[in-house]
Design a protein around this nucleic acid. Structure first.
Length: 273
DNA sequence: ACTATGCCCTGGGTGC
DNA sequence: TGCACCCAGGGCATAG
C-alpha cells in the first residue's frame, strides 16, 4: 500500500536515475490496458516516446513526471503498484505490467499485482487528481485547516483523515498510526474533535509520516522502493495489523474493527472518544 | 452538500 | 489435495 512515505521514497530514489533521461520506448503489457487512462495504450506509448523527464514530483500519493513538452505523466500505484529502476536485461517481475526504456540503456518497470494503478498524460496535473487537497507534508496542511475539516463532518475522524481533500497522502496505515499517536479513538465523530485534539492529531499525522520516511516506508506486502528494496517501517508501527498484540503505551490488547469500510486497528485502553 | 455502497482486481489464507 | 469462499483497499461512480 504505497502511501505518502512510500511514494516519496520512490520519488527520491528515481529522481537521480531518470531526470534528464529520454524515454526511448514504453510498453504496456497485454492485460494491463486499463493502466492507460487518458489515451489508448498504443497512443500513450507513442506520446511518451522521445520525451525527456525534467523533474519528478509528488502530490499526495501521486507521482508526477514533468516532461520536456510541458505535459505531466501522472502515476498512481494504488495498493500493489511499484516502480523499480533496473538494468535492461533484468528479468521481468511476475506482475510486471509495463516497461519504460531509457536512453542510457536502463529501464523502469511498473509492477502491479492487482492492476489498479493508473497513468495519466495531462497538460495540468490537477486534471488527473481533481479531488486532491493539500499534501500532508505541505505548509497548507495546518492544525487550523484540519480542525475546520473535522468540524463540518459527522463521519468518524479516521474517515476524514483518509479523505485526500483533507490531507493528501494519508492512507489506511498512517491514519491508524496517527490516531494512536494522538490517543484518539478512530471511530470518534469528527465534529467532536476540538482545537486541542485537532492540534495533537495534526502533529501525529506529521510524526507518523516522517517516522516512516526515515525508514523508507512500510512493506506490509507488495511495496518496493525505486530500487526494488523493501521499506523498514512495518516492524515499527504501533497498531497497524497488530490486533491481538499488546499496546506499547498502556498494555491493553489492540483490537481490529471496520471504519469507513477499512480495516482499522486501535487500542481500546488509551485511545479515547 | 454530505454520506454510504459497490466496483475494479488477483493472490493468499482459511475452512471443509 | 482440491475447491469455494473471503479478504486486502484508493479512488471513483452512483444512489440516497
Amino acid at each position: 500500500m504505497p502511501e505518502l512515505p512510500e511514494v516519496e521514497t520512490i520519488r527520491r530514489d528515481l529522481t537521480p536515475l531518470i531526470v534528464g533521461r529520454t524515454v526511448t520506448r514504453v510498453r504496456i503489457h497485454p492485460g494491463a490496458e486499463r493502466l492507460a487512462v487518458t489515451d489508448a495504450p498504443r497512443d500513450l506509448e507513442r506520446a511518451l516516446k522521445g520525451r525527456r523527464v525534467e523533474a519528478v514530483g509528488r502530490q499526495g500519493k501521486y507521482l508526477l513526471l514533468r516532461l520536456d513538452d510541458g505535459r505531466t505523466w501522472v502515476m498512481h500505484l494504488r495498493m500493489t503498484g511499484s516502480l523499480v529502476h533496473a538494468p535492461a536485461d533484468a528479468p521481468a517481475h511476475r506482475f510486471e505490467r509495463a516497461r519504460i526504456d531509457l536512453d542510457d540503456g536502463t529501464t523502469v518497470r511498473f509492477n502491479d499485482l492487482r492492476k489498479f494503478g493508473t497513468w495519466h498524460l495531462v497538460e495540468d496535473p490537477l486534471e488527473a487528481m481533481p479531488n486532491s487537497g493539500p499534501d500532508a507534508l505541505s505548509e497548507e496542511f495546518t492544525p487550523v485547516w484540519l480542525l475546520a475539516c473535522l468540524k463540518r463532518r459527522s463521519v468518524a475522524v479516521k474517515a476524514v483523515l483518509l479523505d485526500q481533500a483533507v490531507a493528501a497522502g494519508v492512507g489506511n496505515i498512517y491514519a491508524d498510526e496517527a490516531c494512536w499517536i494522538a490517543a484518539i479513538d478512530p471511530r470518534t465523530p469528527a465534529s467532536r474533535i476540538g482545537p486541542t485534539r485537532a492540534k495533537r492529531l495534526h502533529a501525529a499525522v506529521l510524526q507518523t509520516l516522517h517516522d516512516s520516511l526515515d525508514d523508507r516506508g512500510s512493506s506490509f506486502s507488495d511495496y518496493r522502493d525505486g530500487l526494488g528494496g523493501e521499506g523498514l517501517h512495518h516492524v515499527r508501527v504501533h497498531v497497524f495489523r497488530r490486533e491481538g498484540q499488546t499496546c506499547e503505551r498502556c498494555g491493553s490488547v489492540i483490537e481490529k474493527t471496520r471504519v469507513a469500510g477499512r480495516g482499522t486497528h486501535f487500542c481500546p485502553g488509551c485511545q479515547r472518544r
